[in-house]
Amino acid sequence: MSAPARYERFPAPSFAHLRRLTDAGGLYEHARGTTPRREHGYCVDDVARALVVVCREDASAQDDLREQYLSFVLAAQDADGRFRNRRGTDLRFLDAPSVDDCWGRALWALGTAGADPRALAAFERGARWRSPSPRATAFAVLGAGEVLRGRPGHRGALDLLADAPEVIGRSVPRPEWPWPEPRLTYANAVLPEALLVAGAALDAPALVTDGLWLLGWLLDAQTRDGHLSLVPAAGRRPSDRGPGFDQQPIEAAALADACARAHELTGQDRWLTGILLATAWFLGDNDAGTPLHDPVSGGGCDGLERDGRNENQGAESTLALVSTLQQAAARLPAPALRVAG
């Protein structure tokens, strides 16, 4: 397994643009080019993702970001355990507590930061809830899996995992469309990854088998002519023929994370190929032949268009890039270039 010939080495993740988007209030959701759009404020969805990626770093250089993002997520939690998502620059939360994606992503982040007693206690409050959303549930499962790495018998995490497969869905007996939903939407690979996490933790081989099957199908369905051709922002139905555009970096990052999980469980090189394809997608091996990685800013561009890319470098896209490069650095044999940031 090696990088494509045109990439002698993959770049290492840079935190320079993430720091540019961060201030004392949180992580700005949107940017115009590389300039934060302060008028749009902050959201837990992005800050939680940011907490996950900084917790993956061993270096103390990101400790300040870890503390800042954790404090934001803790502040977003209601006393009953649910989470508010949107926060204005006046530091007031603007919406009601829910068990939507922000709840799931917050639990993912808190589980990842679970060595901190504050994070674990907040995870435990939030994990008492259940969401009807497959993706919110899947994000929460990832957090529960992280808690169980350090605390294998944690009751709240195990109970959440036990309830999750019914909400997430399982493969269906249609070879042409085994996906448990009528269309592919966003962050699709988190669903099979959650099945892998649940199956491994609960000693349920059928869940692992289902997760591997769905992930393999999803990877094949999004590979065209040797590169990733991702589900566009509008989604994809069984009858759709690609490529579709406004492809989103979150799709590549979700695939890289899920393939890393599958490789951890199986040791099979097929899943390293998935991480390789996701990383190469950011570097220009995609339907438009356009890099979404900005080596100057360290940021990630907001979408792949038919004739190029969206030049804005918001939080979600930058975090997707950082996350994918982290998986490449951790799993691919080709060494990563260390870059400033």
Rank of each mutant, 00 (worst) to 15 (best):
Q62R: 08
R87A: 05
D90W: 10
D116F: 12
V53E: 01
V73P: 05
D101E: 11
T22Q: 01
A115P: 00
S71W: 00
V53M: 00
L51F: 11
A75W: 02
L65K: 10
A3R: 10
E29H: 14
A109G: 09
G25P: 03
T112E: 15
R92Q: 15
P13W: 03
Y42E: 03
L51R: 04
V73D: 05
V47G: 02
A24Q: 07
D46H: 09
R6E: 14
G114E: 09
G26L: 01
F72H: 07
R84F: 00
D58I: 02
V52E: 07
L27Q: 09
Y42L: 10
V53Q: 00
F83D: 03
S2M: 14
G104H: 07
T89C: 12
Y42K: 09
D95H: 10
H17R: 10
Y42R: 05
G41S: 00
H30K: 09
D80E: 14
G26A: 01
D63R: 11
C102H: 04
C43D: 12
R56H: 07
A59Q: 10
D63C: 09
L27W: 11
A76E: 02
A12K: 02
D45S: 09
C102I: 01
A76R: 02
D58V: 05
G111E: 06
V53R: 00
A61M: 05
H17Y: 11
D63Q: 12
A96Y: 03
D63P: 08
P36C: 08
V52G: 04
G26R: 00
H30C: 13
A61Y: 04
E29D: 05
R20Y: 01
A16R: 13
R6G: 04
V44C: 05
R87P: 00
T89G: 10
L21F: 14
G88T: 02
D46W: 11
C55W: 03
A109M: 06
H40T: 08
R38C: 01
T89P: 03
R86Y: 06
D45K: 11
T35Y: 02
L74I: 09
D46C: 11
A3V: 09
D95S: 11
G81C: 14
R82S: 12
A106S: 13
E29N: 04
A106N: 07
